[in-house]
Design a protein around this nucleic acid. Sequence first.
DNA 1: ACTTCATATGAATAATTATTCATTTAAATA
DNA 2: TATTTAAATGAATAATTATTCATATGAAGT
Lengths: 106, 106
Amino acid sequence: MKKGLTKICSRFFTNLANPTRLAALEQLLEKPMSVNELATALGQEQSMISHNLKPLLDCNLITIQKQGKKHIYTVNQETLQPIFAAIENHAQKFCPTGGKCLNGEN
Amino acid sequence: MKKGLTKICSRFFTNLANPTRLAALEQLLEKPMSVNELATALGQEQSMISHNLKPLLDCNLITIQKQGKKHIYTVNQETLQPIFAAIENHAQKFCPTGGKCLNGEN
DNA sequence: ACTTCATATGAATAATTATTCATTTAAATA
DNA sequence: TATTTAAATGAATAATTATTCATATGAAGT
């Protein structure tokens, strides 16, 4: 890790450290969609989705494409794919049973 | 991303989304060290370091090796290296100027 | 221009997470 | 076994972040 990356990493991880945003990303990985589609798919309020998409967009973890009234959001796969892959590997190799990493809820 | 990884990812990212813990990891990447060494290196209280190392350890992002009284912590490079690399790439390619991702402090 | 549909924003409150300080546990050694 | 050193824990408070609800913006169609 390059020195001084602590700051950008902190913001980056903060953006990802949220179940609503992760669920949104998970959904958007299936296919790009609009805010309302996302809200419906996740069973959440539209404003909640908007609020949560904003930091992801600001950090370029998703991109927006405006089609008239609709705003279609797309995942930045180049960045997120390897990260999720690393976590999947970690889960399998280092937390096979979930363990303390998953004890408790969230 | 495999379905249902949202939960583990959330905990995972929550652990990383903290400047103190990132600084600790950055330091431990240089070389494994004890709690007090870390505290000194980062200019923080021992109890703060301990509190922050705990979730990293619970999630196996670091490992512990007890040498008598001293507890030497080591980074799980297999997991963290590719993640930090992906973020570095992201920062260069998608946030070359920092932009909104870094505006404000943190 | 008015209405509708889609999204974003703001401000208040709720919930979560971090930090501090005091205390405890545990290992090593006198 | 008493003392010292290293680290962990607990509980209180501070700080941050999430969520909700009301409202604003903005694009399209009438």
